[in-house]
Amino acid sequence: MIQVWLRNFLFFKKTFLVSLFWTVFEPLMYLAAFGFGFGRYVPPIEGLPFIDFYFPGLLCSTAMMVCYFESTYPNYTKLTHQKTFQTMLLTPLSAQQILLGEIFWSATKGMIGALGVMLVSIMFGLFSLKFIFILPVLFLISLIFAAFGLMVVSIAKNYDSFVFSTSGFIIPLSLISGTYFSLKDMPQLIQWLAYAFPLSHGVQLVRHILHGQTDIVFDGIHLLVLICYATGLIFFANKLFQRKMIN
């Protein structure tokens, strides 16, 4: 498993500077435009200035986006055009080890994305030592969406399949999961919908930790949902990937 992770790391090292630039530049744009610019016209939400409210959402959705994209397009190319996975399977590596290696690599990229957001947060005075405590939450989110990405890779018919999962699922999720607005004020239906998926739980948990509002019961549930999603999706991704590779 570690060999698969290492292979991706070696490739990442080659394009390190370009990657790093975007990792920092993107959250910088978002924080500047939404947090700093747009946020000035918005009254406090849940007792927090907009930029403080929005920042946990940006952290979580960045982790989600970065690892989702890392786990989909490059892996589909490895599966179809480059036959990288088929080559790995010629060695003692099993399909499961390849899958887990890829999931952990994508999750690593998700964490690098989140770290980029944290780095930029210094410029906006949002840096906090509490970041240490949200790292496991962000890692869980990354695992979930890396596993989701590899599930889509395992059933995709062509590159267009990712347009469905991106525009039909990932983007809407990044909008309705309590990232830009408070779910408390939303109709019941929207709340149920948002809490049916993992991102909103991650956003709530990170927000509560960063702003010292943790509640052992509610946040315990949020954490449990994330753990269940991560385990469940890795399990299903493994089934689908196995079926795709060996039949």
Partner: peptide, 19 residues
């Protein structure tokens, strides 16, 4: 099934790590 992200030597070295 060569790994097109790497050189010839790197391909062999990577493959060796899988073993």
């Amino acid at each position: 099934g060569l790994d097109t992200d790497f050189s010839a030597l790197e391909n062999l070295k990577l493959f060796a790590t899988y073993f």
